[in-house]
């Protein structure tokens, strides 16, 4: 009973935080609203077109994408941590986001230079190809070396290589859209429209449901591969599904928001501490919610701290996320002593 009430409280906290941050994000910015004004605008009681546009064309899409993409990113981190049984695995640190960034930037520039603007679906596909490529490298390395630190270092290196190549491509692209591209490659939740959000939410929610349905074999896998097989898990299929899911999730995020650091590592860990469990059936929905809360919070800071100058989302998530990673490492060391 005790456990159940803790889970309930956990979800309640996350949902409350999400609601509060949702409205905070709506009212704050270079144009400030009161809560009543926002509610009026939301329910169509206000006739001011510019106010309507600020809320419906700028803030609401941005909030929605931060919410969904944050959730997707954190979920992808949790899946990767489970897969590699490594607490600091995540799409960014393993170079998966950077791989996605590289391929989608290359594809984007290729078509832009021919005057074609890509739609969001093809952007996702190219990001997915990139993330699968990085993932492939990581899998080859993890198959050969079982050491946790080697895995992380290789991931970081892959990330650097991909970022370097992306930079080179961007340098030689020489296009008027480069400013846009640059913004995107730093990571941001702005610039999404409702069509993008449709794609984002369909992909994310389908993947979330898929991940949730996999929570049973995932819980077996947390006991180690040997025991998972003994419990009747089809391990090859399961691993393939897990890789596919996490790559798709991080590809989806990268395609729309660029690479966002530390959400994938920090949030699942914070959520596990909040709920006092690592059970996938709880942590999968919880880390999605947690990711949403975390990204709403970070995006709020990125937008408002030095307004009207906007920070890149990654610099904010890094400030809050990296201490968590250090905390994880210290905790792990302490347990070993």
């Amino acid at each position: 009973m005790n456990k159940k009430s803790r889970y309930f409280t956990g979800f309640l906290i996350l949902l409350t935080c999400m609601c509060i941050l949702f409205f905070l994000n709506l009212i704050s910015g270079s144009v400030k609203f009161s809560l009543n004004e926002v509610i009026d605008i939301l329910f169509g009681k206000s006739n001011d077109i510019s106010e309507y546009n600020i809320i419906f064309k700028i803030r609401l899409p941005r909030i929605t994408s931060a919410l969904i993409l944050g959730g997707a990113l954190s979920l992808s981190g949790f899946l990767l941590q489970t897969f590699f049984s490594n607490p600091i695995a995540g799409p960014f640190i393993l170079g998966i986001s950077s791989g996605a960034k590289l391929v989608s930037a290359a594809v984007m520039i290729f078509f832009l230079s021919r005057g074609i603007i890509l739609n969001s679906a093809s952007l996702v596909i190219s990001a997915f190809i990139g993330s699968i490529m990085s993932m492939g490298f990581i899998l080859i390395i993890s198959g050969r070396v079982k050491k946790m630190s080697v895995l992380i270092i290789s991931g970081v290196m892959i990330g650097y290589i991909c970022s370097a190549v992306t930079d080179i491509i961007v340098t030689f692209a020489d296009d008027s859209n480069i400013v846009n591209l640059h913004n995107w490659s730093m990571g941001t939740f702005s610039g999404t429209d409702w069509d993008d959000i449709k794609v984002i939410s369909i992909i994310s929610f389908v993947l979330l449901v898929c991940a949730f349905l996999m929570s049973k074999p995932m819980s077996a896998y947390q006991m180690g591969e040997g025991y998972a097989i003994n419990m009747g898990v089809n391990i090859k299929l399961f691993r393939a599904e897990l890789i596919l899911l996490s790559s798709l999730l991080s590809a989806c995020v990268t395609a729309f928001a660029g690479p966002v650091s530390f959400v994938g590592i920090a949030v699942p860990h914070l959520v596990k501490s909040l709920f006092g469990t690592a059970k996938p059936i709880i942590i999968i929905p919880a880390s999605f919610l947690g990711g949403a809360v975390f990204c709403l919070f970070c995006d709020l800071i990125a937008r408002t701290l030095f307004s009207p100058v906007e920070l890149s989302i990654s610099s904010v998530t890094a400030v809050f996320g990296s201490p968590v990673v250090m905390w994880i490492m210290l905790k792990k060391q302490r347990r070993k002593l």
Binding site: P87, F212, L213, S215, K216, S219, A220, Q222, M223, G224, G226, Y227, M231, G232, K272, G276, T277, A278, K279, I281
Partner: peptide, 28 residues
Amino acid sequence: MTERIEPELMTCGDVVESGRYPYTNRLG
């Protein structure tokens, strides 16, 4: 098995419970 497992945030009850895996429903 010989391999030592280090499950995260699992009580001994949780570990024993995982033996029920083959008998639980789709969501475990």
